[in-house]
Structures are given as C-alpha cells and as structure tokens.
Amino acid sequence: MFRALSFGAGLARLCPIRPPRGKSTPSLSPRRCSAPKLLRQDRPLHLARVSTVISPSAPDVYQPPTTGILSYLPSSWVPYGELIRLDKPAGTTYLFLPCLWSTILASTLTPVPAAISSMIGTTALFAAGAVIMRGAGCTVNDYWDRAFDPLVARTKFRPIARGAITPRQTLGFLAGQLSAGACVLFSLPTECIYWGIPSLILVATYPLAKRVTHYPQFVLGLAYSWGALLGFPAMGLSLTDPAILATAGCLYASNVAWTVLYDTIYAHQDVSDDIKAGVKSIAVKHESDTKKIMVGAGVIQLGFLSAAGVLAGCGPTFFVGSVGGAAAGLGWMIYRARLRVASDCWYWFRWCAVAVGGVAIGGGLFTEYLAQRSGLYGNERKEALEA
C-alpha cells in the first residue's frame, strides 16, 4: 500500500492535475496530464538523466552577505562586489595562473636567468590585471545572461538578475573596469599591449558562445589562457622569435585543454537548469561521457605542457614536478569527482586551481627556475649569471 501511495505521489508531481480554463475545480481527465519538458520525446533520452544532479536548495528570497569579504563592504557596494565575484577568487586564480606560468618559464629562457625581483614585479602586474579583467569578464557575462540567470537556481540572485544593478549601470561599471585594465596593460612592455588587446574580443564573446555551441568551454579556454603568451614579451622575449612562439604556443594550448577540463566540472553544477534555460555546454551535450572527455583533455594538457618544457630546455625538476604532479592531481580529481553532486563539483573546481595549477605546475616551474639559476644542471648558466 505504501508503495502504491508513493507511486501515486510521484505521478502527481510529474503530471499535476490542472483546472480547465475558466473553472476553479480540477479536472480528473488524464488527457490534461502531460509529461515534463525534460522527458518529452523531443529531448534526447540521455539528457533526462541529468535531473538527478544533487544541488543545495537555493533560498527563495535574496539574503545579503553576513560573512566574508562582502559583509564588510558598504551596502551600496555589495552588488558590485557580487558582480565581480569578489567573494569567489577561484576564477581570478584560473586567469592568473597562465600568466604566472609563462612569466616563470620565460625567466628561465633569458640569456641570464631573470632576477627574482624582476619576475615578482611582473607577476604582481599580472595579478592586478587578473583581478580587474576577471571582474570585467563576469560583468560582461552577467550582462549577456541577464535573461537566463533568473531561470537558474544558483544565479537567480545575481545583481543584474535581481535588479540591484541596472543594465545601464552595468555598462558604466564595465567601462571603468576596462579603463583600469588598460592602465595595467600599458604598464607592461609595448609588445604585451599588441598581444593583449585581441584577448578583449574573446572576453566579450565567450558568454555568447553558450547560446550557439555546446563547447563554450573551448572558447573560455581561448580567453582564459591568453596570459600564457604574455609572460614571454613581459620578460623581454619577443614572440616574433619562432622558437619563443612555439614554446608559448604549446603552453597556451596546454592551458586551453586544462580550461576545458576544469570548466566542464564547473558546468555540472547547473546541468538541469541549463537544459531548461537553453544554455549549452559540454556537460549538457555529453553528460554520460563527461569523464572520458575530461581524461582526453587532461592527456592533451599534459602533452602540450611536456612539449613546452622540451622546447624550453627544462630539466627533471619541471617534468617531475609540473608534468608528473599535474598528472597525479588530474587523475585523482577525475577519479574522485562526483559530477552529480553540485557541491562536489564546486569543491573540485577550487581544488584544481590550487593543487594542480598552483602547487604542481606553478611549483614545478619555480623549482626549475631556481635549479637553472643556481647552476644545478651545470656551470654554464651560473657563470653567465655571475659575469
């Protein structure tokens, strides 16, 4: 009996009985019952399974932040802090890491390994640029998605979606962000400016990719990986040199593949809502094969990362630390991630930035820089440094 009642309750949820037009009494006719949108025949069957994604229930009313950095801001500033995701630095970290990698790798390629003070100064400029441009990217994203965000539980209370910031105010704020970003860019060598400007096109067009392709993660990778090119001219190595361009290109391609991997995990938080809203992603298109795609992206990432190391003449510390560490971290993450649990996806998304991007790849590159600067691989570069 209990099974019958449970089945009946489930059926009622799937096929609610609605009153006919103009009447307040419900009709018991089964012809009024229709299948849910996700289970209709015009949807591929494998997409229906994504409705099992477990996500924390979102509040029905916006709650101002009471903890964290946003809670210390004046109330009128809070919507702008939310707009640039000031309380969620993982995205900034992902934008900064390719700048860090290219700066360190370029520092090992200069005729004499660059002074650590020079490398830190350049890295600080990139860090400031990452904070500003990541915020600008979020502003552009929320502006384009202002009609979609109210339909997704996780994003329905974003500032523009809930009306805390108007579209006109958004564009004015974006102009200020881009001006600040330009100041950082103009603080770098001239060649960085030439190479940096095209990235703005990718930043502006990425949010639109979610409407026309199931592979917006690739477009995001093209934008978020641009810093992998800029570190070389920032350290005085011109990308017009074929050898430098090949090294930078391999590092860039590695980061594009990595972006596809980690953003696919991120996209799994919203699969059900994305289908309803018509938002496209790899997680929506290939829900049942996501981990296979992640493995493939990881292999491509490690391959291009290794190629960059070979072209740069890196030694064992890079291949053990950066390549080996990244392989171990990615393998562990792909094996452990529960893609049907939204909170788990968010955890691994943040973990990947710190453990794989920062500790493994970044740490391996910095160790390689120290090894070459100290003459661990021989006395030639050490003698050049002392001279």
Rank of each mutant, 00 (worst) to 15 (best):
S29W: 05
S199C: 15
T155W: 03
S199L: 03
A9H: 09
F148A: 03
S238F: 07
P167N: 06
Y80M: 01
G137N: 07
G278Q: 08
I54S: 12
P216W: 11
Y262N: 04
F126L: 08
A147R: 12
A283K: 01
D344E: 10
D270I: 03
A243C: 00
G227S: 06
I116G: 00
L222W: 05
S281R: 02
S107A: 15
G81K: 03
P30Y: 04
T25Q: 12
G296W: 10
L370R: 14
H268A: 05
V131E: 00
G181N: 07
G135R: 06
F186K: 00
A328L: 15
R350W: 02
R32G: 15
A283M: 03
L188I: 07
V219G: 00
A387F: 11
A175R: 01
L47A: 02
A353I: 04
I17R: 15
I334T: 13
A387I: 10
A4L: 13
A161R: 10
F218I: 15
L245F: 15
T93N: 00
A209S: 15
P59A: 12
F304L: 11
N141H: 04
W195E: 01
L11S: 11
L237N: 07
A58K: 10
R340N: 14
G249M: 05
L220C: 08
L188K: 09
C250Y: 07
G135M: 08
I293R: 03
R211L: 08
D42H: 14
I275D: 06
V203Y: 01
V299H: 04
W258C: 02
L109Y: 00
F319K: 09
G196E: 06
R336D: 13
V359H: 05
C352Q: 11
S34Y: 04
G249L: 06
T67S: 13
V131N: 00
V78H: 02
G313V: 09
P44M: 07
P216Q: 07
S107Q: 02
I84E: 01
P98N: 08
S51F: 03
L376Y: 13
